[in-house]
Design a binder for these strands. Structure first.
Length: 691
DNA sequence: GTAGGGTTAG
């Protein structure tokens, strides 16, 4: 056995680390003779692969540290956005070099904490050019062009990056004339400079001008093509985008990614998938784009499958793929899976960042765990508008209107300016909780107080708000005085309200408007036909059904699902495919008897079809949500809540029945329907029977 | 440090 020295051990260690063979590397590391270089190797291996906890443990146990070790630990925190930890390390460092200073500045800039960044910048005068550019880039990203320009003018020396950053800042801001001026003034131009000008014209909708600059460029790189393609995409010129893409001699991953994500946005996932499969190489962006594409177009199973594929392909989870994974879990309410992803998130240390944090909050909200959502929300260090909106509308959907409004007030106190989505959350919180006057006040003052002009969503919420409270006349007035044409959703809100309050005439009027606009909207046919059925107008019911057949619309089938032991069980009305159906139906019979003793009376008027009374009861008994609830009770361990999801709104009879069931079996039942959450416990529902 | 993705409502 030849004698090995530090150098050969270190070479071997670095080989393992390069290939991300952590267990092999660690094994070797623990047994080999180590010098400081070995420790630093292992440490930076962990840092590069985002294994922050391992890195920290190693760092703390190091027998000695040099500036490289400190910088490695610092950069671990910088990369993962743990700014406060980065600061702590920075403050403790016995010696700092320019890498340390640049690192901390970058941490502030990247996480958008520009105030602190500029304070740090002012505390020292001999900054390197790269730091000037970094801070200026931070201002540009936040559209703080005045501050960026101030810095630009003060710089002792400028390089081509400085010029490019400023020019592309103006370009992105749509300030074509400033961009143009700097472009003329700039002593040097490279591909970035020219590409920034392409962007400047694109931002102003001047595609032909952009193309002219593109054609004039002395040299082109992939990114120049990509900017032009992105421009075409932005203005829905898919044909031109595709043409240029096909012309590219060597499209890079970015080019493919743009094409994929824009096909996804157009709803053409098949085309996107086609490109995805043809790509010579993929990166995390490609995976994120295709997974999000599936998720956003409602193909949740495909999205989940692709996530599995991705891991098999060796692509690690990063912020964006974790995000996609969480939002997919949220859509299908796969709580167990979501929790597993949460575990991954904790390992990588993204939990307290905005992007992944927001996705986690959304996942817990949509899976019915509002308390867990709030916990994560509180842990997000720098909450952005999305964090606030997610939490606010989460509370609103769960029927905790006052909590939602408390979040809203804290948001205002924190100095975050509400946007359109915030106000939808506020109005729907009021609507779900019968806070009618408060809601209308918000509606009328939102433009004045927060500078948010009511859009059709806000009108719809307010029509809903007034309508539910029975103020149908006011709701109609609101529609009449809208500054734009009411859309299907607005009429839908009026229809829903007039249905609750039994105003047949108004219902028919609203339905007629909807049919005119969207002859294929199946939900509206069903709503109206339910309405007729409820008042025994069977002739009209059959007319509707005839019409449905004429225009070829089909009722969206209702289904419910429940997650048990990591598996999703889906049920349809009168489901007879589930392997445990005998057990479930026997249990339902049992429950039915007990419910009746408790005073439950089936509300048969809600059954759509004209059948005999006894048979109607039978049909109600086997609605998908009841089956799912029964299955949940049978299989989910006592003490744990039962979480059931439904794709449509819960029917009145089921709502009533589940209230009784929650009391009989003494369990918390959380039902998510297409509209909101219902927490059933001890015979009461959190919605207060107002939904 | 100067493309491309990902999170929020109805």
């Amino acid at each position: 056995m030849p004698l090995r020295n530090y150098v050969s051990y270190n070479a071997m260690l670095s080989g393992y680390l390069r290939n991300a063979e952590f267990s092999l590397a660690r094994n070797l590391f623990d047994r080999m003779p180590k010098d400081l270089f070995s420790w630093n190797l292992m440490l930076s291996g962990y840092v590069r692969n985002r294994r922050l906890r391992d890195a920290r443990v190693l760092f703390d146990s190091m027998p000695q540290k040099d500036v490289v070790s400190w910088n490695a630990m610092l950069s671990g925190y910088v990369r993962s956005g743990h700014v406060d930890e980065a600061r702590e390390v920075f403050d403790k460092m016995p010696h700092k070099n320019s890498i340390s200073w640049n690192g901390l500045l970058a941490a502030y800039v990247r996480s958008g904490r520009l105030e602190e960044g500029s304070l740090l910048f002012e505390s020292k005068s001999d900054w390197e050019l790269i730091s000037w550019n970094c801070l200026m880039g931070g201002y540009v990203k936040r559209s703080m062009l005045g501050d960026a320009r101030l810095l630009f003018d003060q710089m002792p020396i400028r390089d081509v990056v400085s010029w490019n950053t400023m020019i592309s800042g103006y370009a992105q801001d749509g300030d074509l004339s400033q961009a143009r001026r700097l472009f003329e003034e700039s002593p040097v131009r490279d591909v970035f400079t020219w590409t920034a000008m392409v962007c400047a014209y694109v931002q102003n909708g001047m595609l032909d001008e952009a193309r002219r600059v593109f054609n004039e460029m002395p040299q082109r790189r992939e990114m120049s093509y990509n900017a032009m393609i992105a421009g075409y995409v932005q203005y829905k010129r898919m044909d031109m985008a595709r043409e240029l893409f096909e012309e590219m001699p060597f499209p890079n991953i970015g080019s493919w990614n743009i094409m994929i994500s824009c096909y996804c946005q157009e709803g053409d996932v098949a085309q996107a998938r086609n490109l995805f499969d043809r790509m010579p190489q993929r990166d995390s962006v490609s995976w994120a784009a295709i997974i999000a594409g599936y998720a956003q177009n409602g193909h949740y199973e495909e999205a989940m499958n692709m996530l599995v594929e991705m891991k098999r392909d060796g692509e690690g989870l990063n912020r964006s793929t974790l995000c996609c994974a969480l939002s997919t879990c949220a859509h299908i309410a796969a709580l167990e899976l979501g929790k597993q992803v949460h575990g991954q998130v904790v390992k990588t240390g993204y939990e307290n960042g905005c992007l992944v944090g927001n996705a986690l909050v959304g996942m817990y909200c949509k899976c019915g765990c509002i308390d867990e959502a709030y916990e994560v929300f509180q842990g997000i260090q720098r909450k952005d508008i999305v964090s606030w909106n997610t939490m606010l509308s989460g509370y609103a959907r769960h029927g905790f209107g006052r909590l939602a409004l408390t979040v809203f007030e804290s948001m205002i106190t924190a100095g975050v300016k509400p946007d359109e989505i915030t106000m939808v959350g506020v109005l729907s919180a009021c609507s779900h909780n019968g806070l009618t006057d408060r809601g209308t006040e918000y509606f009328h003052s939102m433009d004045k107080d927060y500078g948010v002009k009511p859009n059709s969503n806000h009108y719809t919420c307010t029509v809903d708000l007034l309508g539910r409270a029975g103020r149908l006349e006011e709701a109609q007035n609101l529609i009449r005085n809208m500054p734009f044409e009411p859309d299907v959703a607005t009429w839908g809100a009026l229809l829903g309200a007039s249905r609750i309050h039994g105003n047949m005439e108004l219902s028919e009027k609203a339905a007629e408007m909807i049919f005119k606009m969207e002859p294929h909207n199946s939900g509206m046919y069903v709503l109206l036909s339910n309405l007729y059925a409820a008042s025994g107008r069977w002739v009209d019911v059959s007319k509707i059904r005839l019409k449905m057949r004429e225009v070829g619309v089909q009722k969206t089938p209702g289904y419910s699902w429940v997650e048990v032991h990591n598996k999703i069980h889906t049920f349809t009305v009168g489901d007879c495919f589930h392997p445990e159906k005998r057990r479930i139906y026997a249990f339902l019979e049992e429950l039915d008897l007990e419910m009746k003793q408790e005073g439950y009376v089936p509300s048969t008027k809600l059954v759509l079809h004209d059948v005999e009374e006894e048979e109607k009861k039978h049909m109600l008994k086997y609605h998908s949500e009841k089956i799912a609830v029964a299955f949940g009770i049978l299989t989910i361990p006592a003490g744990r809540p039962i979480r059931v999801m439904k794709n449509l709104r819960v029917c009145e009879d089921c709502h009533n029945a589940i209230k009784h069931i929650s009391k009989i079996v003494g369990r918390l039942i959380i039902l998510r329907d297409s509209h909101r959450f219902h927490h059933f416990s001890e015979g009461i529902c959190s919605c207060g029977d107002y939904w």
